[in-house]
Design a protein around this nucleic acid. Sequence first.
DNA 1: CGCTAGCCAGTTGTTGAACGACCTGGCAAC
DNA 2: GTTGCCAGGTCGTTCAACAACTGGCTAGCG
Lengths: 231, 231
Amino acid sequence: MTARPRDDVDRLQGPLSRAGRALAGGGGADRVAEALRDLVADGALVPGTRLPEDATSTSLGVSRNTLREAFRLLAREGLLQHELHRGVSVRTLSAADVADVYRFRRVLEFAAIDGPHDPAALQRVRTAVEEGRAAAAAGDWHGVAGANSRFHSAVVALAGSPRMDESMRHLLAELRLAFAAAGDPRPFHEPYLEDNARLAEHLEAGERGRAGRLLAAYLDRAEAQLLAAHG
Amino acid sequence: MTARPRDDVDRLQGPLSRAGRALAGGGGADRVAEALRDLVADGALVPGTRLPEDATSTSLGVSRNTLREAFRLLAREGLLQHELHRGVSVRTLSAADVADVYRFRRVLEFAAIDGPHDPAALQRVRTAVEEGRAAAAAGDWHGVAGANSRFHSAVVALAGSPRMDESMRHLLAELRLAFAAAGDPRPFHEPYLEDNARLAEHLEAGERGRAGRLLAAYLDRAEAQLLAAHG
DNA sequence: CGCTAGCCAGTTGTTGAACGACCTGGCAAC
DNA sequence: GTTGCCAGGTCGTTCAACAACTGGCTAGCG
């Protein structure tokens, strides 16, 4: 099932020390957390990977204490799993987790669509659509995934609630975990490029009914697709 | 406006070292966080109070590193404010923060009422009503506040979503901050004891329309009351 | 042969001290 | 009155060390 600990450490040495070089001397707990977040999003850290404090801290070029602070942050976000006296490992999402994330997404996104719309957020919705199209044209499916993430983030931002934005950020971070586990990002994002575009148009036109139906259909399909990959 | 730093430290010495004695030797970052959470909820730590790492760690009887881990957790929860190179202080909620908390509460609680109901959560709704009445009968208004908090926590739990529960926990923690700033908890919780009871009845009877209207009225009034205390 | 108890290596949790970086307030010079 | 500088205090990070805990291995027992 999972590789032996030693193998984990060996396999990690590469991406981690590469990220460590990017951190360039001065540590910074938040920057360490950011680096780990990116590694998870890029799929360099597969769910289930254990991250021994000693090996990880030296690879990243920061002190163990600083790394621990970063671990706490990421554990709070749900990206890492922290077991007492057993260390941290990259979280593995269960099917129930995926379902819960989508349940919450529905609540947040529908609420954002129903309420008054923040114009600035509407602009970012449009921008995300364009970025997604550009990334797709360049064959950058990882970029498409990022644009899709920003798209739905912007949809929630329509509500103008910093706290809802923060929750959505967490949900999307967990989803990146699920996508990383599922492998190739293309089938999970390409089909929805034009759906996003139409959804943006409906939002701009103020046609909330159409927007809602389109969003519901998207969420249902995406969830089913992800759940299938987790079975 | 705020007292001079030295005064803060002196005033803190009491509650903090008392809490430190309760921590009893073995530190534990999570337990430290829990202790600080309680101090904030009890109003022992007024919003705006600064918490110097050195003085606080010695008062609590834990190392500075351990305290810093606890600080990170609480800052994430919004209870403490962390400014770079300026240390942490107990967060002060602005009127906009209070409004945002209630905006999010509406989203979560209405969503929980509308969806399918988890029977176990319904039971906890009932329990919270009883606990609130018992606390009121005993004149324990702080206890009433806690019961009210558990009541609305249970309402959200109807949705059966761990992530929504977690978000609600954060919102309620922030609200405790606002209540602590407002002073006497009685006028903020007593009027709603019977409202909660009726809301519970409506939920049990499956009368979602009535439950929704009652909840909306409650949230509007409570928010206005809290905003008035913050002006 | 199977099983339990206990030991052992490895890892985490916590501590304490140390040093550089940074903010703040006050003083002096212009 | 403003600007610039300086010193005191606090934070951010690192390092080394030890206690506490975990999981697996071994030896002894039935």
